[in-house]
Design a protein around this nucleic acid. Structure first.
Length: 192
DNA sequence: TAGGCCATCTGGTCCT
DNA sequence: AGGACCAGATGGCCTA
C-alpha cells in the first residue's frame, strides 16, 4: 500500500515540518495545504466523555444508540423491540454461553464490547494528540493536525535526531573540556 | 471523482 | 470469564 511515504507528511502543515521527516525515503510527500478540515477525533457518535453514560444508555435501551450512526449498519438493526427488562438480563447473560444468549442479550453484549473498543480508540487518540503536542511542527487553529502515521514517523525521526545530538554532545565532552552546547548542534539528520 | 484519513463495528486471539 | 489488543471491513468526510 502506498502508505509509507505518502504518509509521511500527509500535509504537515505550515512551516516545513517536511524537512523534519522527509528523511531518507520520503518520496516527496504531498505537501499541500489543508484547511480546517480537521479530523477531530470526536465524531458524531462522540460518546467520549462519558462512555459510561452511553453504555448505560445502551444498556438501558438495548438497540437505541443515540450517536451510533454506524450502529444501524453495524448491527443487523433489529433492535426495534427489546424491552427495558433486557438490561438486567443482559448483564447476567454475559456469563452465559453465546449460543444460549437471546438476540437482545447478544445485542447488549455487542454494544458493551463496541463501547469498550470505542473508548480504547479514543484513549489512543488522546495519546496521539499528546504526542503531537510535543512534536516540533507548527500547531495552530489554522494548521491541520498531523495524521497519525505522520505523527509517528515524525516522532521517530525526532527521537533519532535528539539521540544523535546527545551522542554528539557526549563525544565532544569526553575530551575533558566542556564546550558550549551550541557547537554541538548537529544538522537534524532525521533521515538516519 | 479518486485517494487519503479517520471512526466504528466486529470477530479472533491473547492475557489476567 | 472478561477485558485488552489487533486487524479487516465498511462508510463518511475532505482535498486535489
Amino acid at each position: 500500500m502506498d502508505s509509507d511515504a505518502s504518509l509521511v507528511s500527509s500535509r504537515p502543515s505550515s512551516p516545513e515540518p517536511d524537512d523534519l521527516f522527509l528523511p531518507a525515503r520520503s518520496k516527496g510527500s504531498g505537501g499541500g495545504g489543508f484547511t480546517g478540515g480537521t479530523v477531530s477525533s470526536s465524531t458524531p457518535s462522540d460518546c467520549p466523555p462519558e462512555l459510561s453514560a452511553e453504555l448505560r444508555g445502551a444498556m438501558g435501551s438495548a438497540g437505541a444508540h443515540p450517536g451510533d450512526k454506524l450502529g444501524s449498519s453495524g448491527f443487523k438493526s433489529s433492535s426495534s423491540s427489546t424491552s427495558s427488562s433486557t438490561s438486567s438480563a443482559a448483564a447476567s447473560s454475559t456469563k452465559k454461553d453465546k449460543k444460549q444468549m437471546t438476540e437482545p442479550e447478544l445485542q447488549q453484549l455487542r454494544l458493551k464490547i463496541n463501547s469498550r473498543e470505542r473508548k480504547r480508540m479514543h484513549d489512543l487518540n488522546i495519546a496521539m494528540d499528546g504526542l503531537r503536542e510535543v512534536m516540533p511542527y507548527a500547531h495552530g487553529p489554522s494548521v491541520r493536525k498531523l495524521s497519525k502515521i505522520a505523527t509517528l514517523l515524525l516522532a521517530r525521526n525526532y527521537i533519532l535526531m535528539l539521540t544523535n545530538s546527545l551522542e554528539e554532545m557526549k563525544r565532544l565532552d569526553v575530551g575533558g573540556n566542556p564546550r558550549p552546547l551550541r557547537t554541538v548542534a548537529s544538522p537534524p539528520c532525521l533521515s538516519c
